[in-house]
Nucleic acid binder design. Structure first.
Lengths: 197, 197, 197, 197
DNA sequence: TATGAATGAGTCTTCATTCAT
DNA sequence: GATGAATGAAGACTCATTCAT
């Protein structure tokens, strides 16, 4: 994925004596494991990453640190995806349908969904990791803040989260139109006081 | 819970000689542990339940079975709470505000929220346990089906789930009015085709 | 060592399903290791005791607890030897020569000396174990207190300790007469004030 | 210690490019660790000395060698202190009080005491290191040999060792007068044969 | 010459599970 | 029926040591 600036030399052993790549490989393997929902153990990570067991403890002081790095990687991946979404919605100049469409795409990407779920699970279980999940919520709120009130933005963010989990748990396909309608409705919710009329 | 329905027997040491109570105590302890987010181990369960270590393997073939029983207990607890909610909303004769109010109460009960999260986490991690979480969604859908379309019911269910997780992860208090508005809006969403006008 | 009350059955497996004996065997093995000066590890203890690795952690929560139990065993052994010494010196009705003789015997028993050194080493390295070593010093002081002032008793105790370590470190045999003279002299030391005459 | 006797060279980063200083820093760090009673590991030594991990194995073939060097350093330190003591006692022209006073000072210096204990512990545990501890005893014997018989000198040496350990293990302050009396008495012990009269 | 990366052996510890009693 | 003892597998982590650079 990163630009292969290997130069013209050999390109095979990859990661031997390349601390950055090695660390990354380990982190990535841990992230994969997390997404797949299995337990995170040094052994499993090492196997998955194709590195000797000792490497995992060489690069990370303890399993918690490794887990955090992996979750960070996941969060960064989501951030990137998010930046793209923002980019495209910005161009749409406030059309809720475009936003709904973007979110629909998000909800169809099960890998992303599972990454998010992993983040959420970690945050739920370990309070000290809550900031990772909150990042996502904040991103969402920020994205929406251009188009609706902060409070509505939060409702939409919660809604999308809920729908994401539902998508993972129930396998009936999502209905794009219904989703679009729901998002539009939530974004148009009146503020307190101006209820109804 | 401990109604002393011992019958005319002797004064036994409580739950000794009462396999059902013992099994229940173990299951409950496991459920508590699950809600608290700790690892589930025979030892911890036995300690928590105040029973000898051997009991946990005597009553449950293996840890998976014990976990499932505990999750079932959790699900039952939620079912019960749900039945109550349904009861009260039924009496309200279709007033969305009453429903919103009920859901608000649900979202304020962090224990319930955490039980739900535990269920969700288990379902997310182990596909064979998905039915447990789905139960909750089905309950929700059924409750709402009297008042809105099935599809909207699902949207509301997802929304409530999402808001629940948000409540656990972010600690700002929830705004009852906003929630009420959102639920009402989602329930009133037009079906496909009757869009807009 | 304990009376073999095995009954008429088999007498071989010894310690199978005999928690007391097993615990004792483990403790003894650890004590032996300590006396020999090697590192104390679960594996080594298990090997030495002829029990599976898991047993050592089953009977002792952690290595520290095992070490303490082993040191206690050592201390008890010393206590017993001490009781005997006291017994015999008591019968001697205050004859310093008898005391010196006893101490000489003590200093010739290298096993005892090494047990003492192990205790001392542990106490030196881990302040929380100092009470174990102090026990020995207190015993000594008490034994001597019948015959000399407390302060002289402490001097003698320290002297005996020092000679013990010397005996371990230097291998020339000890001179019984010199030792006897030294002890007698230390015990007869005048108290402060009555110096010389 | 860091007298900048760099000579006319350049301003190097301190000890970089100065193998001797580096080796010494490592040895010193190891000695400190030994005195503090902690485990001796390459990592800990490197950290303490502020040198890269590799240095510790670069300068010492293995940990045993490093340990021995550290113990040697400790022994040298004691030797130096000893030389001073000898110097001052020599000037005192045989006054036991002066000697007792010197020993008292020694016993009040807990750092020295702990260095000695470390040496003793090492010698007790590893026979091949016994010469290190013996050095101290020999020094002592030599110092005293001018004033008393060799055998009495050994008794005094053993006594001082014992008192040193006592000082470390029991925290009541030492009584200078008693100590002085004891040393004097031990030094004046008659040789075998001339007992009493 | 020097050093950070690397790794496999070995440490403590926890645990599910089995089983004798 | 019940339960405490027992144990081997596996987990986290530490480290001496080796070696590429």
């Amino acid at each position: 994925m990163p630009a292969p600036s290997d130069g013209p030399d050999q390109a095979v052993p990859r990661s031997r004596r390349d601390p950055v790549a090695r660390r990354r490989a380990i982190t990535q393997a841990a992230a994969d494991l997390l997404v797949e929902g299995g337990d995170l153990t040094h052994r499993r990570v090492a196997d998955r990453a194709g590195v000797p067991l000792g490497s995992t403890t060489y690069y990370f002081a303890d399993l918690g640190e490794l887990r955090e790095a992996a979750l960070n990687l996941l969060a960064e991946g989501l951030d990137e995806a998010f930046a793209e979404t923002r980019q495209q919605t910005a161009e749409a100049d406030g059309d809720p349908d475009v936003l709904a469409s973007q979110l629909y795409d998000y909800l169809c990407d099960r890998d992303r969904l599972r990454a998010d779920a992993a983040l959420q699970g970690a945050a739920l279980q370990r309070p000290e990791l809550r900031h990772l999940e909150r990042r996502w919520a904040d991103n969402m709120a920020e994205l929406l803040s251009a188009w609706t009130s902060p409070i509505n933005a939060r409702l939409v963010a919660a809604f999308v989260d809920g729908v994401g989990v539902h998508a993972l748990l129930h396998d009936e396909p999502l209905d794009r139109a219904a989703l679009s309608r729901a998002i539009t409705a939530l974004m148009r919710l009146p503020a307190a006081g101006e209820e109804k009329k």
